[in-house]
């Protein structure tokens, strides 16, 4: 049985969890088995609705103390849920939650782990799965040798598929929750904005913008496209933009459908964070900027002239 971990933030199910559901359902078909979901903690809405994504059952350990991410606690609960339900493949989305708990769950279950997965397995000789390596510059084929397998899929690598109908049976699991050693002092969630790692469109700007006072048009373009905003490292280092917007090798890695780069040269360390984007648009006044080599569409021009026109033209088609 394939068990899909359904991550949520303050009770809202993450988009990446729906991707994991779709992946898990496809994986179960391939293996000739069934796919079910697992929720730890409390969610808003009706868990039975998750049946629309093709799963038959949703197991839930409905205890509010599980809403805090404590790797030691969640590992024990998830591993026991996997044992009690007879799960052989456990699917996570490779987000901050999975990075914290999936490797621990794998160790506890004596399971192999592959994270950053970008394909369904090839079963012709064993169980071979593809993962992203070298910060998106290459892929590796990894063979999983264990009976139980933990798979953590890259966000934005699989399209969500949902049916009009379908109801999952919700089954409450009675699993004891061990005491946590982690005390949460404060939580600071970015509200109202589109989270960078989940955004389908990202508008990003670099040193070519000259100074923080010029970000108004970047934000307006992002707003017009319902996009998240990002920036290059020197921009965050100079304090022009908050650190959580910094994408690249040492920042956040993203894979949106559309990445628009304004006044960014396209250094290899920047590309490492964005080269999995499906479509890349580069606007740069220097025709020799390396970013054009990795772009799908480009304009050689001044951002201060091009961006206002771009906003205007996009509004026309909306």
């Amino acid at each position: 049985m394939v068990l899909i971990y359904i991550d949520h933030s303050e009770g809202e199910i993450k988009k990446s969890s729906y991707e994991a559901l779709t992946y898990g359902v496809e994986l179960a078909k391939l293996l000739g088995t069934e796919a079910n979901g697992l929720i730890t903690g409390t969610i808003h809405g009706d868990a039975a609705e998750l049946g629309k994504y093709g799963i038959s059952k949703v197991f839930q350990v409905n205890k509010p103390e599980l809403n805090t991410i404590d790797a030691a606690v969640l590992t024990k609960v998830i591993a026991q849920a996997a044992n009690d339900t007879g799960a052989k493949e456990i699917v996570f989305s490779h987000n901050t939650t999975a990075k914290t708990i999936a490797p621990r769950v794998a160790v506890r279950l004596k399971a192999g782990l592959v994270s950053g997965v970008t394909s369904l397995p090839d079963l012709t000789s064993g169980f071979v799965i593809r993962k992203s390596v070298f910060s998106g510059k290459a892929f590796a084929n990894v063979k999983m040798n264990t009976d139980i397998k933990v798979i953590s899929i890259n966000p934005n690598s699989f399209h969500i598929s949902k049916n009009e109908t379908g109801n999952a049976e919700v089954i409450q699991l009675d699993i004891p929750v061990p005491a946590s050693s982690i005390k949460v002092i404060s939580v600071n969630k970015v509200r109202g904005e589109v989270p960078l790692t989940e955004a389908e469109i990202v508008v990003s700007a670099g040193r070519g913008l000259k100074g923080p006072e010029n970000w108004g048009m970047v934000e307006e373009l992002a707003k017009t496209l319902h996009a998240a905003t990002a920036c290059s490292r020197p921009v965050a280092d100079s304090g022009w933009r908050p650190h959580h917007e910094h994408v690249g090798q040492t920042g956040i890695q993203i894979a949106p459908d559309l990445y628009i780069a304004l006044g960014i040269s396209g250094a290899i360390q920047h590309l490492a964070g964005v080269n999995r984007s499906k479509t890349i648009v580069v606007i740069n006044k220097d025709p020799e900027a390396p970013f054009f080599k990795s772009a799908d569409y480009g304009i050689v021009g001044d951002v201060f002239e091009v961006v206002p026109k771009l906003i205007e033209e996009i509004k026309k088609i909306q």
Binding site: A71, A72, T75, H94, K99, T100, I101, A102, P103, R104, A106, V107, R108, L113, S115, G116, S132, V133, F134, S135, A140, Q253
Partner: peptide
């Protein structure tokens, strides 16, 4: 390898 795994595994 971008695995983000070794630390969590050591802790377990």
């Amino acid at each position: 390898f971008n695995s983000s795994s070794v630390g969590a595994m050591i802790s377990e």
